[in-house]
Write a protein that binds this DNA or RNA. Structure first.
Lengths: 360, 360
DNA sequence: TTGTACGCGTTATCAG
DNA sequence: CTGATAACGCGTACAA
C-alpha cells in the first residue's frame, strides 16, 4: 500500500466518505452513520460499508469534522519550561488524562517570557483548541484582565488568584511549613531557605516562603533574613550559587529548605564542595519530589505536590467547561478552586526524627 | 468583553469573515485578501477591513482554513516518555524549531508500549497532522512495513535503518567508543558497561555496546562478558540494580560506561553505597549529557548527543517533505540519512588524563 | 432504516 | 483591484 493508486479509487488523494458511499453502494449519510456508530443501521449495510472502508483505507477527516462540529478535541497546555522535571511530569500526566477523555494536548512552553505567556492566551492557535490549561510564571495579579478569555480556561499554580476562573492549586504554604517543622523537629535550629523571589507577593516562591515563616513561628524560632537566599531561577546551578553565597559569607545553617528539587540538588553539591556532610552537618529538604530526588546522594527528602491529582483535576474541569457542564460540585456560575494536598517524602538528606527510623 | 454580546454582532458566536465583510461593506474575498496580506488591495479598503476586524474582534478560524488548504500546520512528535530528560529536552527543542517554521507540535508519549508506537503511526490523529517525527523504542527491523506510511515521516534514533524513509541518527557507536577509550586512557583496565539489551541487534543499546567493544579492541583489551550488566529500562533505579548485581557478585570494575545518564546516576549511588569512591576507585561515564549530569556528586563525565542538531534537522527535513521539496541536498527520490556527531564532556566522575588538568 | 441537500468558515477561480 | 460562487469533507434536519 504505497502512496498513489490504491485499488478502488481513480484519484490519488485520500478517499472521502463519498468514495466509500459509492463503493458500498449507499449514501454518504449511511457511511456517516456507520462511522459514528449510529444505532439504527442494518447489519447488512454496516457490513458493506465497513468492507468498503477497509478496502479503500478510509479515515475520517478530522479537520472537516471539527469544522462541522465546532470543536477540535485539542486542548493546549502552557507551561514555562518542558525540560524542568516538574513541568515534564505535569505535561506527561495531563497528556495521559486528556487521552482518557478523548482529547489531545498541544504543549506550549512559554520559556519564562511574558510575551510567551500572553501569546499562549491570545495567540493564533486560539481557534484550534477547545480550551487551555495554563500555568503562568511571569503574569501576576496585575494581569488579571488578560485572563478574561472567552474560552474554557483552567489556571494551575499560585501566581494569580481570582474567582473569575477555575483554579487548581497545590498546597505550597502547608508543604513548606511541614518541611520547616520537620527540620526543626529533627534538631535543626538555623534553617535557611533557598530560592525566594523578593518582592513577590504571590506565586509558589512567595507561598513557600510564607510556609517557611509559619513553620519557624510555630516552633518559636525567629525569622532571620540572613538565612534567606533569593534566586530568580530554579535550576540546579542557581541552588549552587545561592548556597555558595551563604556559605562563603560564613553563614552556615544546620538545615535548608530548597524551594524545589533542582535547587536542592545544587545545595547538596555546594555543601559537599565546602567539605561538609548532609545530613550530619546540614539537613536539606527539597520541593516537588521529582524522580531524581531519590538518586541524589544522599537521597533527597522532598515535598510531593500531588501532580497526578493536579493533572486529573485540571483536565476534568476543563473538559466539563468545554461541554458546558458545571464542573465538580460547584454551583451555577461559580468557579472551581481546589487545592491539591502535598506530602512529605522522607529520605536521607535529613536526620531521623528522635526515636524513629528513617524511611527509605 | 465577556462571553456573550459583543457590540456589533447580533449573534453570540465568534464573528466570521462574512460578518467582517458585511461590517466593512466589502465581499468575503476582499476580507480574505486583507487577512492573508494579498498584495493588490487598495489602502482604502484595507483600512476599512482592518477597522472592521478590529471592532468585531475577528480571528481566522484555523480549522476551516485547514480544511480548505488541506494541511493543519501541526506535526506530531512520538517519543517513549516525556519525563525522561533526554526526551523532554528533545521535545522542547523540536517545539522550538517547529515554531520558527510556523508549525505546532503534538507531543505523543508512547509509554514504552508497542501498541502506543503503532498507534502513533496509524492512529486517528493521522488526519490532523501534516507529518510525524518518530522516535521508536519498541519497534525494530521486523516492523519495517509499519513504517511505510503515506505521509511525511522522519525517524529519529537507531532502532530501525532503511533507505525507505528519512532518518536522523546520533553517533552512538562513536560516542561509546570514545567514552571507553577515554576511560582506558585514564588508566582503567576493567571497564564495565551498564544497561545493555541482550539479543538486540539495533537500537541505541546495541550500538553503544558495539562502540564499547570497539573501544576495548582498539586498546587491545579483551571483551569480558562478566563486565556487561544488562538492563531493559534506563531509569536510575535500573542503574542501581545493575551495578549492585555486579558488585554483589564480587565483580569490581575500575571504570563504567553507563548507557545513559540516569543509569550513571544510579551507578554512582550504588558505588557509594558499597563504600567506594568515584573516580578514585571506579570511574564513571554517562550518555546524553543531560542537565543533571553536572550536579551529581561527583559531577558526571558524559557523552553529549547533540540534541539541538537532531531537532533542527528533523524538523527541517519534515517541513521540506510536507512542502514537497527534496530535503537538504539529497537527490530526487532519495532519503535523508544524517548522523549528528556526539562529543565527550569531561567532569569529575573520571580521572584526569595523564599530564592533563580536569576540565570542569 | 436510508437518502438529499445544505451549511460550517475558508480560499481559489474567474469574471467584472 | 473586487465580487459572486464553487469547492474542501463532514454531520444533520428533513423527507422518503
Amino acid at each position: 500500500m504505497s502512496l498513489a493508486a490504491s485499488p478502488g479509487t481513480g484519484r490519488g488523494s485520500t478517499p472521502t466518505m463519498k468514495d466509500v458511499a459509492q463503493a458500498a453502494g449507499v449514501s454518504v449519510k449511511t457511511v456517516s452513520n456507520v462511522v459514528n456508530d449510529y444505532e439504527f443501521v442494518s447489519e447488512a449495510t454496516r457490513g458493506k460499508v465497513n468492507k468498503a472502508i477497509e478496502e479503500l483505507g478510509y479515515r475520517v477527516n478530522v479537520p472537516a469534522r471539527n469544522l462541522r462540529l465546532g470543536y477540535t478535541g485539542m486542548i493546549s497546555l502552557a507551561i514555562p519550561d518542558l525540560t524542568m522535571p516538574y513541568f515534564a511530569q505535569l505535561s506527561s500526566l495531563v497528556i495521559e488524562e486528556a487521552k482518557k477523555l478523548g482529547m489531545r494536548v498541544l504543549v506550549e512552553p512559554t520559556l519564562y517570557s511574558r510575551e510567551g505567556e500572553i501569546e499562549a492566551l491570545h495567540g493564533s492557535q486560539r481557534s484550534m483548541i477547545d480550551g487551555l490549561i495554563y500555568s503562568p510564571l511571569e503574569l501576576g495579579m496585575d494581569d488579571l484582565d488578560q485572563l478574561r478569555v472567552d474560552y474554557p480556561l483552567v489556571v494551575v499554580g499560585e501566581r494569580i488568584f481570582s474567582d473569575q476562573f477555575d483554579h487548581v492549586a497545590t498546597e505550597n504554604v502547608e508543604g513548606a511549613k511541614h518541611a520547616t517543622a520537620y527540620l526543626i523537629n529533627t534538631g535543626c535550629r538555623r534553617v535557611a531557605v533557598i530560592g525566594t523571589h523578593p518582592g513577590e507577593k504571590l506565586g509558589s516562591a512567595a507561598l513557600r516562603l510564607e510556609g517557611y515563616r509559619q513553620g519557624l513561628e510555630e516552633a518559636g524560632l525567629d525569622y532571620d533574613p540572613r538565612l534567606v537566599a533569593p534566586s530568580r531561577m530554579w535550576h540546579r546551578i542557581d541552588g549552587v550559587n545561592a548556597m555558595n553565597s551563604l556559605l562563603d559569607q560564613g553563614i552556615v545553617p544546620d538545615g535548608v529548605v530548597a524551594l524545589n528539587d533542582m535547587l536542592a540538588a545544587g545545595v547538596l553539591h555546594s555543601i559537599q564542595m565546602h567539605g561538609m556532610s548532609v545530613p550530619d552537618d546540614i539537613s536539606v529538604i527539597g520541593f516537588d519530589n521529582s524522580d531524581d530526588s531519590q538518586y541524589l546522594s544522599p537521597s533527597l527528602t522532598s515535598i510531593s505536590p500531588g501532580l497526578k491529582a493536579v493533572a486529573r483535576l485540571s483536565v476534568r474541569v476543563l473538559k466539563d467547561r468545554i461541554n458546558g457542564v458545571q464542573p465538580l460540585n460547584t454551583k451555577e456560575s461559580q468557579h472551581v478552586f481546589r487545592k491539591v494536598s502535598s506530602s512529605l517524602v522522607v529520605r536521607n538528606s535529613t536526620r531521623a526524627l528522635p526515636g524513629n527510623e528513617i524511611a527509605v
